[in-house]
Every structure is written in C-alpha cells, then in structure tokens.
Design a protein around this nucleic acid. Structure first.
Length: 336
DNA sequence: GGTATAATAT
DNA sequence: AATATTATAC
C-alpha cells in the first residue's frame, strides 16, 4: 500500500476547494482489498512456529489468532499486535504508547475492569449488567453529572470505505443467511467493533440493497457514497449455505459464497493482527513525509488509514481528523 | 437478530 | 434547516 492518497495542502479554510477531491482519497477497489487473508508471510509464520492450516475456517482461525497473537507479542516480533479478543475492548491503551500506533477507539463506559495479573484474562468480555436499571440507570445515577469521572461515551463509529469493504466482504462470504451481526462482527475482527455497530450498519446496508433492487440499472445516488464505493457481491443474492456453527461455535466451512474466483474469506489474517480502529484525535497522528519504514506487512490497519474519507465533509488539509472533535488534541504518538 | 426511532454529525 | 449516519430502544 504505497500510494494511498495524495496529500493535499489545503488549509483549514480551504472550503471553497470543492473540487472532485473526494475521489482522490478514495482508494481503488483493488487497492482497498487487503481483505484477502494471505497476509502472513510464510517466513514469518515459520519464524513463529505458526502452522497455517488451509483447512481451518475463518472463525477458527480468528479464534486461534488470539493465542497466536500472544505468541507473536512474546517473541517481540511486532509491537503492533494487540492481545485482543474477538470483541472486547479493554486492553486499549496498553501498547498505544510507543511504536504501536494503535490507539483505542474510545474509553470504555464500563467500570475499569483492570486485570493486573491477567486473571481471567482471555475469554472475558465486558457485558452490560443486565436488565432494568443496569445500563441506563447506572449511567445516569452512578455517574450522574460528574464529567471528571468517566462520563465519556464511545465516539460514533465511522464506517470508512475500508471498513465497509471489510464488512461487505464478510457478508458476501457468509451469504445472506449467515450474515448476522454477531458472525459478521467476529469475522471482521475489528477491535472495538461491537455487534450493535455491525447491526446498525447491516440494517442500512440491507436497505441500500433493497433500494438498489427496486431500481433497474440505476447507479447509486449521491446519498450512497459509501455503499457506492463497494460493489455488492452476488453472493448476497443467493442463499448462504448455512453456516452451521453460526455464532460462536463451530462453523461450517460452507460459505454461501458462490464466487469462484473470489475467495473473500479473508477476514483478515487474524493471526497477524486484527484491524484496529484508531480514532485520531485532533489533527493528524503522522505526516506523509515522515513515514518510517513500513514493510508490506502491516498486520494492523489503523484509523489513520481508515479515516481517509474526504468525501464525508470538508476536512481537507489533514490526513486524518476525527469525525467529530472530542476535546482532546493530538496524542503524543510522534515517536516512531 | 431485526426494525423503528432517537441522537448526532455535517 | 435539512439530511445523512450511527446509536439505542424495543
């Protein structure tokens, strides 16, 4: 991924520059298809004693990746890898500090489930306390109106073209039938991504598909910039051969994917690193002219790259900028 | 898990 | 103010 986008030297007030810049920042369809899984080089794999079995299904690989990740980290291979689970967001600011440019998307609303010694580490996922008072009441009463504590809420997830591409790939891979939020979320393997996030997006995506079917050869309207950027797999038109396992269990190797040349599956090589959404507060985390060496192997994709969506608004001039603008400024992650 | 609706961002 | 996007409630 060498030439992602051309930097534009627009200033903060370059609003009038309403040219067709949007498509500049939009990677080609081929370009943003790192979704294919063969992302882990053989040599690397062998270096870590990883035996990539082709038989495995995505879910299994994903699951196993958690362990693998640990191994890799231990080996000191790349600091980029986070010891994250499929879907928990607690180990956020652990290695964000230094060479790892991964930052947690957002502060977690829940209690600080610090796990100092790692007891009960892995398969733990945060869950809302249950019914009734729990969630709303807790937030309302417990936290009341004291901003100092942790009244912070997760920033809205921004579905970048890359993220959406991943989403579409997974959905296409699963087939309509199996494409349910939970499974999609798991296969996407994006840190911080919740089932709700996916469900919401899936809803919109379905509406889009429906809308598209209704119209005969009508190109996507201007409203569908995101969806328009990603071709919809024909797999979606058919039924997915049920993924047996469905959710967490097993998993059928049967993919609704009827594609012959397109082996989507690639929910990314989970083993090497899940996609890590990285909200960049303030302006930019890194400048183009300042890249450090980046081998082709970029296990993790960060929001830095994911945020490149100029078509969304008028944030020209900066490579990345957080959709909204929290109250913080650029994180001190300038050491690389 | 799916849909309706609220909240928020642009 | 309107609309698009995401979150949350049901």
């Amino acid at each position: 991924m060498g030439e992602e986008v051309k930097m534009r030297e627009c200033e903060a007030n370059g609003d009038e520059e309403r040219v067709a810049l949007w498509e500049i920042g939009l990677p080609a369809a081929d370009d943003l298809t790192p979704l294919s899984q063969p992302l882990v080089p053989p040599e690397l794999a062998s270096a870590f004693s990883i035996s990539p079995e082709p038989h495995r299904t995505i879910l299994e690989v994903n699951r196993a990746s958690q362990n693998t990740v640990s191994n890799i980290r231990g080996a000191g291979g790349g600091g980029l890898l986070n010891a994250l689970s499929s879907n928990n967001f607690k180990s956020y600011n652990e290695d964000r500090a230094r060479d790892s440019m991964v930052v947690e998307p957002e502060p977690e609303p829940e209690e600080n489930n610090m796990d100092p010694d790692g007891s009960g580490s892995e398969s733990r996922k945060l869950r809302k306390i249950d019914s009734g008072e729990a969630d709303s009441a807790l937030r309302a009463e417990n936290f009341g109106d004291d901003p100092s504590a942790r009244t912070l809420k997760r920033p809205r997830l921004v579905w970048t073209p890359q993220l959406h591409k991943r989403f579409v790939d997974v959905v296409g891979y699963l087939g309509i039938k199996s494409a349910v939020p939970k499974t999609i979320m798991q296969l996407m393997n994006v840190e911080g991504l919740t089932r709700e996030n996916v469900a919401s997006h899936l809803q919109k995506y379905r509406l889009y598909l429906k809308r598209m079917q209704g119209l005969s050869s009508e190109g996507p309207s201007s409203s569908d910039q995101l969806f328009a950027s990603t071709p919809v797999p024909q797999s979606l038109h058919e039924n997915g051969s049920g993924a047996g396992g469905g959710g967490s269990g097993g998993s059928g190797s049967a993919h609704g994917n009827g594609h012959l040349g397109m082996p989507i599956p690639g929910p990314y090589h989970p083993a090497a690193g899940p996609m890590v959404p990285m909200p960049v507060y303030g302006h930019m985390g890194m400048q183009m002219g300042n890249h450090h060496h980046h081998h082709g192997f970029d296990g993790n994709i960060s929001y830095n790259m994911l945020q490149q969506r100029d078509w969304s608004g008028n944030n020209y001039g900066s490579v990345v900028s957080y959709p909204h603008h929290p109250q913080h400024v650029t994180p001190p992650n300038d050491n690389m």
